[in-house]
Design a protein around this nucleic acid. Sequence first.
RNA 1: GGAGACGUAUCGAAGUGGUUGUAACGAGACUGAUUCGAAAUCAGUUGACGUGUGAAAGCGUCCGUGGGUUCGAAUCCCACCGUCUCCGCCA
Length: 428
Amino acid sequence: MLDMKFLREHPEEVKENIRKKFQDSKCPLVDEVIALDKENRALKQHGDDLRAQRNSLSRQIGGMMKEGKRNEAELLKQQVSAMAEKMKQVEAKEGELAEKIEKIMMIIPNMIDPSVPIGRDDSENVEVERYGEPVVPNFEIPYHTEIMERFDGIDLDSARKVAGNGFYYLMGDIARLHSAIITYARDFMINRGFTYVIPPFMIRSNVVSGVMSFAEMDNMMYKIEGEDLFLIGTSEHSMIGKFIDTILDEKKLPYTYTSYSPCFRKEKGAHGIEERGVYRIHQFEKQEMIVICKPEESAKWFEKLYQNTVDFFRSLDIPVRTLECCSGDLADLKSKSVDVEAWSPRQKKYFEVGSCSNLTDAQSRRLKIRVNGEKGKYYAHTLNNTVVAPPRMLIAFLENNLNEDGSVSIPEVLQGYMGGMKKLEVKK
RNA sequence: GGAGACGUAUCGAAGUGGUUGUAACGAGACUGAUUCGAAAUCAGUUGACGUGUGAAAGCGUCCGUGGGUUCGAAUCCCACCGUCUCCGCCA
């Protein structure tokens, strides 16, 4: 959500930004909302005048009643009553206009960072850097569910019976590996100075509409029947929501959290054959990081955040690359976003395992997350990034650590979390 | 789930229909005086949002949220949300 003042003063820049995101059909909204805003302010002035008049007359009535001038008071009462109809109309119009304006402001995209490459969709995202050697071994690597099955580590058939497609039973060493990765990720981030948090896994609708766009909400969120509650799609939702409607002390910034949660997503729409197994699922677990900081520091934090994910994967010997999201692939609230992708030796390409975003002040404006600083009040910047989402990351883990004899090596940093195991051996 | 109490600005807290409510009072914070410096003391300042302006003044809105009654609502009525205490149930 943009600042109305900014939009009023820089309409051409806002339109240019919309065009860069290939959403040209939204351009007319800019002039439309400026006109509405102008009308709204004039109407508000009119309403304020009426209210001032009423307040003043009502005070006079109060005075007269005390002095016992009943007849005069009655006359004034009638006068104020006569205004009532007009005020009602003005107030109704005020509400109507404010609603229209907000609706438009919600769909005008955030200003993208000047460094964001211009492109229509994810095919035009730009590789930034590769870390580690993407190795293709000289033996065949099976689909990840097949590797898991060798260890009796997955049961999708039962999951389908119990909950439907998009759910899984992880079992035995594979389940243990999953938990080990989450726990290791938690400690990894704690060691980097982040505060560990376990947040609510359900949130109210007002938080939902603050942290994401309407399109996302419809495609992602599960609603609890009969309650004003939604299952979170990521702990970012409850973690940013934590700060809703607050004024933070500048001295306490930045807030750097790493949170654990299960995540629930509808994942509406058809998905390809490469997204079977545990790639795209309705329920998964994730270790997340979020930062709330001063505007001038968000660019620096952005770099640090995705670097954390890169370092995490590299500590497990998984080759990764960073991919800059182009303008058209950037969600409307985001100013800049980098995906971290892990190497798949089976597919011989990289696939997404995490996403790092700087939302500048767009999210905080919606949620009213402000900072009381030396130079006055301002909106904080919010950022979020995936540390790791183990079900999906297991794909990269198993593929990259698979040995020719079918065993899977466990990197040193993880062995402690696996009870000292150095290898998963195939059961005969 | 049942019963009761409560929700007022950074915090505590008064305020049960009106010119004296511009939300008292107290604490905290900030500024100044005093002091070699500090504590204590004294004086002053200290909510948010919108509008307006060169800047201001002014005006409007906000007393958990949303409605209603009234010329006028923190105050009365209704619904919802939340907190606390006790009871019940349950990891």
